[in-house]
Computed example of a mutant assay.
Amino acid sequence: MGLLSSLFRTIKVFFAVCLFYFKLGFIYLARWYEPALRTRGNYNHTIIVLGDDHALGVGGYSTIMAGSGVAHKLAREVAKENSIRQSWQIFNRGEYKASTEDWLHPADSKRKERPGLLTNLLQDPKYLKAEIIIIMLGSYDALQKDPSLTPQDTLRNLELICQTLRRSGNENKSIYLCTIPTAGDDTHLSEDKRADNLLRNQLVEAYLSKNTDGVLPGLQIDLAGNFEMKRRNLYWQDDRHFSDIGYAKIAKDLFAVIRSDMVKREFALIRADLGLS
């Protein structure tokens, strides 16, 4: 009887893992079919959401044609808003299990094998046109071992990433940095690691308040900084990644943060076209 129970649990875990990676494959495939919003005149704008699992959309619903994560949900919010008159295309550039070290420019990395995520992004023609960049990154830093990353390392990496993004592509871009999600830390991390994540967010918030690199506050999506993120239905079955409801809430709240920025950019294009700027 015990042998059968053990075999059943093994099979259940096997199929659960297979389903997870099957869904993850759908999320990545969906990035090949990122449709623009319906055209609203001759003016076009670009937003990029980059980061780790939480930017990618792990835990949410996805199909090949529907897209995933915050980028997809944000595009739906933009499409519903009457004050947005022009076309905005929003690209998902989240990467599974990516740390801040994975997103560093190769010259800034401590690794022997240099990371290439940021290099690939900077070479993407879509990035060169991007006017708004949203960063959701840092939740995997507590789990890194080679090299191990302290809260101070995380802040340094985020600063370097933001500085590199600021220097490249569209000179007039806005960069929004979100805090690091902490849901599931009680289950997945030791007490020391949980304390490190709290410190990480404190350092991020202090960096944003100084505004030395012109980086703007995105959303507080950690449990300590935003009590609204404590709702159970915002999270997937692992209690760590956001659910479809969670991504929808983040997109709605994030749109409220960046909407005035988007409207100003649309108005600036119209003024330039009319020769008023």
Score class of each variant (00 low, 15 high):
Glu101Trp: 02
Asp102Tyr: 02
Asn42Cys: 05
Arg240Ile: 09
Glu95Lys: 11
Ala251Gln: 06
Ile132Cys: 00
Lys193Ala: 15
Leu223Asp: 13
Leu143Tyr: 12
Lys129Pro: 00
Arg194Trp: 00
Arg240Leu: 15
Leu128His: 05
Ile64Trp: 04
Val215Asp: 04
Ala75Leu: 09
Asp192Thr: 15
Ala107Arg: 10
Ser209Lys: 13
Ile180Asp: 07
Leu128Asn: 05
Leu234Trp: 14
Leu160Phe: 08
Asp108Tyr: 10
Ile135Lys: 06
Gly41Trp: 00
Phe14Lys: 07
Tyr207Val: 02
Cys178Phe: 05
Thr39Lys: 13
Arg85Gly: 06
Gln123Arg: 13
Asp185Thr: 10
Ala206Ser: 14
Leu158His: 04
Pro125Ser: 06
Phe255Asn: 06
Asn201Val: 04
Lys145Thr: 13
Trp32Ile: 08
Phe26Gln: 08
Leu122Met: 13
Leu189Thr: 10
Val263Cys: 06
Lys252Gln: 13
Gly275Ile: 07
Ile175Ser: 09
Ile132Leu: 06
Lys73Thr: 01
Leu199Arg: 15
Gly218Met: 01
Leu56Trp: 01
Ser109Asn: 01
Phe255Ile: 03
Leu121Lys: 01
Pro106Tyr: 03
Gly25Gln: 05
Asp146Ala: 14
Trp236Ile: 05
Met136Gln: 08
Leu7Gln: 09
Thr46Asn: 07
Glu171Lys: 15
Glu34Tyr: 00
Arg156Met: 09
Lys80Arg: 14
Pro115His: 01
Ala272Glu: 11
Gln163Asn: 09
Glu95Asp: 04
Asp53Pro: 03
Arg271Ser: 12
Phe22Gly: 06
Leu219Glu: 04
Lys112Phe: 13
Leu3Phe: 07
Pro106Asp: 02
Arg9Val: 12
Asp124Ala: 02
Leu122Asp: 05
Asn201Pro: 06
Leu276Ser: 11
Thr63Trp: 04
Lys80Asn: 10
Arg156Ile: 03
Phe14Cys: 12
Tyr21Phe: 15
Asp238Arg: 11
Arg76Lys: 10
Gly218Val: 02
Trp88Arg: 03
Ile133Gln: 02
His188Leu: 15
Glu159His: 09
Tyr127Arg: 01
Lys173Glu: 02
Lys252Asp: 10
Tyr43Leu: 11
Ile221Met: 03
Leu19Met: 13
Trp32His: 12
Gln202Leu: 07
Asp261Trp: 00
Leu160Val: 07
Ala79His: 07
Leu276Cys: 12
Tyr140Phe: 12
Asn92Gln: 04
Ala248Cys: 11
Gly67Pro: 10
Ala55Met: 05
Met229Ile: 12
Tyr43Glu: 09
Gly184Arg: 09
Met65His: 00
Ser209Ala: 15
Gly246Val: 08
Ile270Asn: 00
Asn92Ser: 04
Asp238Phe: 11
Asn226Glu: 13
Thr10Phe: 14
Asp273Asn: 13
Ala107Pro: 00
Asp273Ala: 13
Asn120Ser: 11
Ser148Trp: 08
